[in-house]
Amino acid sequence: MALRSLQVTITALGICIVIGIPAGAALALIRFPGKRLLTALIYTGMGFPPVVIGLMVYLLLSRSGPLGSLGWLFTLRAMILAQIILATPLIVGITMSSVLGVDPGLQPQLRALGATRWQIVRALLLEARFGIIVGVVAGFGSVISEVGAVMLVGGNIEGRTRVMTTAIVLETRQGSFDFALALGIILLALSFITNLTMVLGQGKLSSS
């Protein structure tokens, strides 16, 4: 179950990063019509009630819903999808603001040193790296701690879609506080170890 939690978290977070960091960079660096609207939508997404996202994914994937034919409801895929919708705006928004926070004077100077467009994007992302790591950490936190949405679309099925958080809810309800607490401690430990790894990685980045 702890493994399943990690599997869902890591898969969802991985996809969030792959979508979120380029999207955040694009939002910071490219001018296009409707950008303000999109930015406002992303900011909204950063604080959206997870259970509402769960409901929307549920409706989307339910048998009569538009994506019902996929048969994803009450599977890990449904849970991962909900997590992605939940955490991507966080990573996009924080990446965007970190890239915007880089000294605007840098860009022309890199160009004057002979950087191509992609080399500039790369350099700006590296400049914004600490902010981006914060975004990833925030995304990780929201994904691993999520209960409501995951419960709704995953169904908390034992051996299949039950993860740490949903198990804690169940065990608490059934009065097995010791077991629930033990699960909670394991979850905390998982989260701590992952974050510690990221912090150590960050230290390495800053000294390079």
Binding site: D103, G105, L106, P108, Q109, A112, L113
Partner: peptide, 9 residues
């Protein structure tokens, strides 16, 4: 071309 800016970043 290389340019040194007035306020280097």
């Amino acid at each position: 071309i290389a340019m040194v800016f007035q306020r280097p970043v």
